[in-house]
Simulated assay, not measured.
Amino acid sequence: MKINWKVRFTNPIFYAQLVLSILAPILAYAGLSYADLTTWGALFDVLKQAVSNPYVLSLVVISLYNAVVDPTTKGHKDSLQAQTYKKPKKDVA
């Protein structure tokens, strides 16, 4: 899997995708919303329960996979053009 990790990690949107890919399936399984996590203790309790549940962990892995793989290319890699980027591409309208 050839992915341009350097460029992805310079893009704040990628971090948001990773965080949401982890939290969304955990909260959905627990029947909670983001508003229910009002303390760090509550967040850590939910994460601790998720880590001990293989089903929830598999949901998180699938969610992370979906956030990382580019659906516009064949296979599990970035396009040849995207692999050459030094920073996220800006579209010019």
Rank of each mutant, 00 (worst) to 15 (best):
M1P: 15
N4R: 13
W5P: 07
W5D: 11
W5Q: 14
W5R: 14
V7K: 11
F9E: 09
N11W: 11
P12S: 00
P12G: 05
I13H: 04
I13W: 03
I13G: 03
I13L: 06
I13F: 01
F14C: 06
Y15S: 12
Y15G: 07
Y15H: 05
A16D: 11
A16G: 06
Q17M: 13
L18T: 04
L18C: 08
L18Y: 10
L20N: 14
L20S: 12
S21D: 07
S21T: 01
I26W: 03
I26Y: 08
I26P: 01
Y29P: 04
Y29W: 13
G31L: 10
G31Y: 01
G31D: 01
L32I: 00
S33N: 11
Y34H: 06
Y34I: 05
A35W: 02
A35L: 12
A35M: 07
A35F: 01
D36C: 04
L37C: 06
L37E: 06
T38G: 08
T38P: 04
T39W: 02
W40L: 10
G41R: 10
G41A: 10
A42I: 00
A42N: 00
F44H: 05
F44Y: 11
F44T: 04
F44M: 07
D45T: 01
D45E: 01
V46F: 10
V46H: 05
Q49W: 11
A50F: 05
V51G: 07
V51A: 14
S52G: 07
S52N: 09
N53C: 00
N53I: 01
N53K: 04
N53L: 01
Y55L: 09
Y55D: 09
V56A: 08
L57D: 00
S58L: 04
L59C: 06
V60T: 09
V61E: 10
I62R: 12
S63H: 08
L64W: 09
Y65D: 02
N66R: 14
N66C: 12
A67R: 00
V69E: 14
V69T: 15
V69S: 05
D70Q: 02
P71N: 13
T72D: 15
T73S: 04
T73Y: 03
G75N: 07
G75L: 03
G75M: 07
H76P: 09
H76L: 15
H76Y: 15
K77A: 15
K77E: 15
K77M: 12
D78A: 02
S79C: 11
S79I: 10
Q81R: 15
Q81N: 12
Q81A: 14
Q81K: 15
Q83P: 03
Q83S: 01
Q83A: 05
Q83D: 01
K86I: 09
K87H: 06
K87A: 08
K87E: 14
K87T: 07
K89R: 07
K90T: 13
D91A: 13
D91H: 12
D91V: 14
V92D: 15
A93V: 11
A93C: 04
